[in-house]
Amino acid sequence: MSKKNERKGTATSAVSLITLVDPSSPISEQYRTIRTNIQFASSSDNPIKTMVITSSGPGEGKSTTSANLAVVFAKSGQRVLLVDADMRKPTVYKTFNLSNAKGLSTVLSTATSVLEAAQRTVIDNLTVLTSGPKPPNPSELLGSMRMAQVIEEAKNLYDIVIFDMPPVVAVTDAQIMASKTDGTLLVIRENVSRKESLTKAKDLLSMVQARMLGVIYNGAENSKDQGYYYYYGN
Rank of each mutant, 00 (worst) to 15 (best):
K3Q: 04
R7A: 12
R7P: 00
T10W: 04
T12S: 12
A14Y: 15
S16T: 13
L20M: 13
D22K: 11
P23N: 12
S25Y: 04
S28I: 08
R35Q: 02
N68K: 06
V71A: 13
L81N: 12
D86M: 07
M87I: 04
R88W: 14
T91L: 14
L104R: 02
L104H: 09
T110Y: 03
T112R: 04
E116G: 01
A118H: 00
T121G: 06
T121I: 04
N125R: 10
L129S: 02
K134Q: 03
P135S: 01
P138H: 05
V150H: 11
I151Q: 00
Y158D: 02
I160F: 01
A170N: 06
V171F: 15
D173N: 11
A174N: 09
A174V: 11
A178N: 07
D182Y: 13
D182V: 09
D182W: 14
D182I: 12
G183R: 13
T184V: 09
L186I: 15
V192R: 12
R194M: 15
E196H: 05
S206L: 13
A210T: 04
R211E: 00
L213H: 10
I216Q: 09
E221D: 13
N222Y: 10
S223D: 09
K224L: 15
D225C: 01
D225R: 05
Y228S: 03
